[in-house]
Simulated assay, not measured.
Amino acid sequence: MKKNMGTADRAIRIVIAIIVVTLYFTSVITGTTGIVLMALAAIFLITGFISFCPLYTPFGLNTCSRKK
């Protein structure tokens, strides 16, 4: 897997995931919505830590800074 996520993209995903997890465990988000958002938060954490988003590949997106 070739990295396709930049630092800002990774940080945003991780922060969003932490916010969703916090809201879930403080019972602000509950039920089916909570479960769906927790699954999305898990995906955000995984993709944030490995710097690769599979959905970027078919669209040719790459948020990594290009070094010359």
Rank of each mutant, 00 (worst) to 15 (best):
M1I: 05
M1N: 10
M1R: 06
K2P: 00
K2R: 01
K2E: 01
K3H: 10
N4F: 01
M5G: 02
M5S: 02
M5N: 05
M5L: 01
M5P: 00
M5K: 00
G6S: 01
G6E: 08
G6W: 07
G6F: 07
T7D: 12
T7L: 15
T7V: 13
T7P: 10
T7I: 12
T7C: 11
T7H: 10
A8I: 05
D9V: 05
D9P: 06
D9A: 09
R10C: 03
R10Q: 08
I12F: 08
R13A: 00
I14T: 02
I14P: 04
I14S: 00
V15T: 03
V15S: 06
V15N: 01
V15Q: 02
I16Q: 06
I16R: 05
I18M: 14
I18W: 06
I19V: 14
I19F: 06
V20P: 08
V20Y: 05
V20N: 04
T22V: 15
T22F: 14
T22Q: 10
L23Y: 04
L23R: 00
Y24I: 06
Y24L: 05
F25R: 04
F25T: 07
F25D: 03
S27C: 07
S27D: 15
V28M: 10
V28Q: 10
I29C: 07
I29R: 02
I29S: 05
T30E: 15
T30I: 12
T30Q: 15
G31L: 00
T32E: 13
T32Y: 14
T33G: 12
T33Q: 09
T33H: 10
T33E: 11
G34T: 03
G34K: 04
V36S: 10
V36T: 13
L37A: 06
L37F: 06
M38P: 06
M38S: 15
A39D: 08
A39F: 13
A39G: 15
A39W: 09
L40S: 12
A41N: 08
A42T: 11
A42S: 14
A42F: 12
I43L: 13
F44Q: 08
L45W: 09
L45S: 10
I46T: 12
I46E: 09
T47K: 09
T47G: 09
G48Q: 00
F49H: 11
F49L: 15
F49W: 13
I50R: 10
I50A: 01
I50W: 00
I50G: 03
I50L: 05
S51P: 08
S51T: 11
F52H: 09
F52E: 07
C53D: 13
C53W: 02
C53S: 14
C53H: 03
P54L: 08
P54S: 07
P54V: 07
P54E: 02
T57W: 07
T57R: 13
T57D: 11
T57Q: 13
T57H: 11
P58M: 03
P58K: 04
P58S: 08
P58E: 02
G60T: 08
G60M: 05
L61K: 15
L61Q: 15
N62M: 01
N62T: 04
T63W: 07
T63R: 06
C64L: 11
C64E: 15
C64D: 12
R66K: 15
K67L: 14
K67S: 13
K67W: 09
K68E: 15
K68I: 14
K68Q: 13
